[in-house]
Amino acid sequence: MNIIFYIAAIVAFVATVMVVTRKNAVHALLYLIVSLLAVSVIFFISGAPFVAALEVIVYAGAILVLFVFAIMMLNLGANSGKEESKLLKPNAWITPAILSLILLCELVYVFINYDGASVELRVIGPQEVSQSLFGGYMLAVELTGMLLMAGVVGAYHIGKEKKREYHRYLQTNENS
């Protein structure tokens, strides 16, 4: 099991790095999907099959499709790659990378010092999760509904195209 974990972890990390360094948005998205799938595998082997499936269904299957959809709608393709390439020069990313590295070192230090007593892994299946979700977290679920409503209303309004303005003689009757 550990071997699978490490493989998935390496895949996830490499894919994620690829996401950040690609020039082409679609390629990056593909790598992101791979990364998500790898993370999903990790979920699965850490005893969380339900969210492993959800990760694929919702994240890879819906959210990222939205991304692709947007990319297609804007018809962005390889032509944006040239502008991007000059931004990928070392001086653009070296400082944040070093800073992140420092942060990482700190985190690693913290992790190493953390002696969480290892607990035997237990599969927490959908039933348990659902009982938790619709038991104690019922209100949170309802609130999530409101969150999605906010997202929908916001996206609807902002994404709408501007209404063409006609001369008043050309307006249809229902508008006038």
């Binding site: 850490s46 005893g47 190493i112 953390y114 969480g116 892994l121």
Partner: peptide, 10 residues
Amino acid sequence: MSELPLEAGL
């Protein structure tokens, strides 16, 4: 299920 390499996961 075996134990999970928690540190590695984190």
